[in-house]
Design a protein around this nucleic acid. Sequence first.
DNA 1: GTCTATAATGAGATAGAC
DNA 2: GTCTATCTCATTATAGAC
Lengths: 198, 198
Amino acid sequence: MLDSIPDSTAGPRDRVLAAALELFAHRGYFSTSVPDIVRASGVSTGSVYHHFGDKEGIARTLYDSVIERMEQALEAIRERHPDTASRCRSMIELLFDIAEHDPDLMSFMLHARHREFLPAITPVCSSRPFQLMRGVVAEGMRRGEVRRMDETVAAVSVFGGALRLIQMRLDGALDRPLNDFLDDTWDCAWRAIASDAA
Amino acid sequence: MLDSIPDSTAGPRDRVLAAALELFAHRGYFSTSVPDIVRASGVSTGSVYHHFGDKEGIARTLYDSVIERMEQALEAIRERHPDTASRCRSMIELLFDIAEHDPDLMSFMLHARHREFLPAITPVCSSRPFQLMRGVVAEGMRRGEVRRMDETVAAVSVFGGALRLIQMRLDGALDRPLNDFLDDTWDCAWRAIASDAA
DNA sequence: GTCTATAATGAGATAGAC
DNA sequence: GTCTATCTCATTATAGAC
């Protein structure tokens, strides 16, 4: 699993990141001011600017760390599972777990409009974690586990439902935990792209 | 189809809305200042505030209009098509068309973080258009056209892939028009939820 | 209803002591 | 490295003539 960013005991850098993640996830980047982060983290303005340069630097650091940890977790799944179906299922399970266990992290990663405040960022869909997920599906297609079709369509079709469900959960539109829906979600996801042979 | 909001010939109200839609879609709500809207619309600050009260009022008006037109278009599809499969397929087709023909509108409707600037708004997933889409799927389940499962899961599974693909297209991560992917997308979407009997 | 000019606020960022 | 005090400036919003 992903480790959460530490909060109270850690150094100022991590305290700022933890506070920023929570504030960004709940109010959004633009509705969070640097003074808000200063208050919530207990770190002074000067220290914040010393470590991160500017407000955007906080968001960038957070984004990079989130993306990297996500990628590692997905890569670990890819290595542990040999076949495409169990890889994809485990990835959906991971996403559900993170969304339940660390909703702020998932919220920041998923629905934050990063382009609005991180000008040089690549679109979420092109980020390395998503590319990795797409790669798994593409490999499944070469192996005959996934039906022949456009690779992008296959990738969005197998993960799109789960991502949408996560978004609903984060928005408070779903009362029960995501795990309750895992079996149904996975059934739909795999039917969408599974090879007819299998 | 949805009518675009008028731009140059219309009254100040519509000019402001058209300019705001474009600016919000491209830069986001928070990166768009009222002076930006004033410049782009050619309507004065005073007039803008006279009509909309405040900046949020512009976004709210836009949001309501977008949601309502969307709902009407979806409802028209529901009335025109008797069976669940052709209803869902037409809805995906509609979404693709809007995303290609009026990307600003789709962008504002889909990826705008409305909660960040419209405090009282209901989550996108609970908006009436989405509820309508969900209702169509639920009806299909009662009729036996859609497999028995959680209704929410069925709804996100049939539309999730298409929505994800639209997001990629809006983010510039997809070079070809969405229509090129319609058949593959629909095939996946319907396999995900179709009753085994059919 | 529409406009220009302006007020008031709070933001991001810096200076400089410790 | 950390802090407080402060600067600068763009933003939202208003006032009041026409």
